[in-house]
């Protein structure tokens, strides 16, 4: 292995570089798995870990008295940790809260149905067998995740929005008519646009939207927060113009 690494330093040969990378994909896979189950898909983790490996291959000094794998491991782990830090999720949010968070989605849906209204935090806590503080923390961690998750999972709850939305043109027209975020709306997926329309212009509550679209309230809340953040970012890019009040 060191011979290959020395050769790479001398020749900068792409084939040698690729060979070295391929030879260590097992290590990449192993380390990526260690970070699995923290809210990020394994495929993404493997990709991130591979980037770490490439960096290690490019930076390793074959003259050093350490094995390549000894050098590469912290580089790869560092890359994985940075990924989580950038995502603001798993490393910071304890597993206990993540699990509660996953459970809360269905708990909230269930008691909303039972009560025929949106539940209070105390009611959610009671139904989930958790304290109010835990529920609040778990809900906050959901929010942290939602803002950075690029796609909150279109099919996360097994539905096709396109099938459900026959009225997208209507929604678009109504939104465009009332506000002037204009072109930004066109860039949104129809699903997100429809949700904006239902919440802000039809005045439906998040529970009502959840019911209408057959998804959980938490999912609605994540998607709305994400869509608004996208629009905000877009507005700043577009020089913050708005047609005046």
């Amino acid at each position: 292995m060191k011979r290959l690494l020395r050769e790479l330093r001398q020749t900068n040969d792409r084939d040698i570089r690729n060979k070295l990378i391929e030879a260590h994909l097992g290590l990449v896979e192993y380390l990526a798995r260690r970070f699995a189950g923290r809210g990020e898909p394994l495929d993404d983790l493997t990709q991130v870990a591979t980037i770490g490996l490439v960096k290690a291959v490019d930076r390793f000094d074959p003259g050093r008295e350490v094995e390549f794998s000894t050098y590469a491991t912290p580089t790869i782990v560092g890359e994985l940790k940075r990924h989580f830090r950038d995502k603001g999720w798993a490393v910071r949010v304890p597993r206990r809260l993540q699990e509660l968070n996953l459970r809360l989605g269905s708990v909230i849906s269930q008691i909303s149905q039972d009560l025929q209204r949106s539940p209070t935090v105390a009611e959610i806590a009671q139904a989930a067998g958790a304290t109010e503080d835990e529920v609040l923390e778990a809900l906050d961690s959901a929010h942290a995740y939602s803002l950075i998750s690029l796609d909150a999972g279109a099919n996360e709850e097994g539905l096709s929005y396109h099938e459900q939305i026959g009225t997208d043109d209507e929604a678009l027209e109504a939104l465009e008519d009332r506000v002037s975020v204009g072109p930004l709306l066109h860039r949104l997926p129809p699903r997100d646009r429809h949700m904006l329309y239902l919440r802000f212009f039809k005045g439906l509550t998040q529970s009502e939207i959840a019911k209408e679209l057959g998804i959980s309230q938490m999912h609605v809340s994540r998607l709305l927060a994400k869509t608004l953040a996208t629009l905000r970012a877009g507005l700043e890019d577009d020089g913050d113009s708005d047609g005046g009040a």
Binding site: I108, S112, R117, S118, P119, T120, V121, A122, I124, E132, V135, L136, L139, H143, T205, Q206, S207, Q217, S221, L224, A225
Partner: peptide, 14 residues
């Protein structure tokens, strides 16, 4: 939560 707001209202607040 101290004021016993509903989940929907808390999301609105956010």
């Amino acid at each position: 939560a101290l004021l016993d707001f509903t989940y929907d209202r808390i999301q609105d607040l956010h």
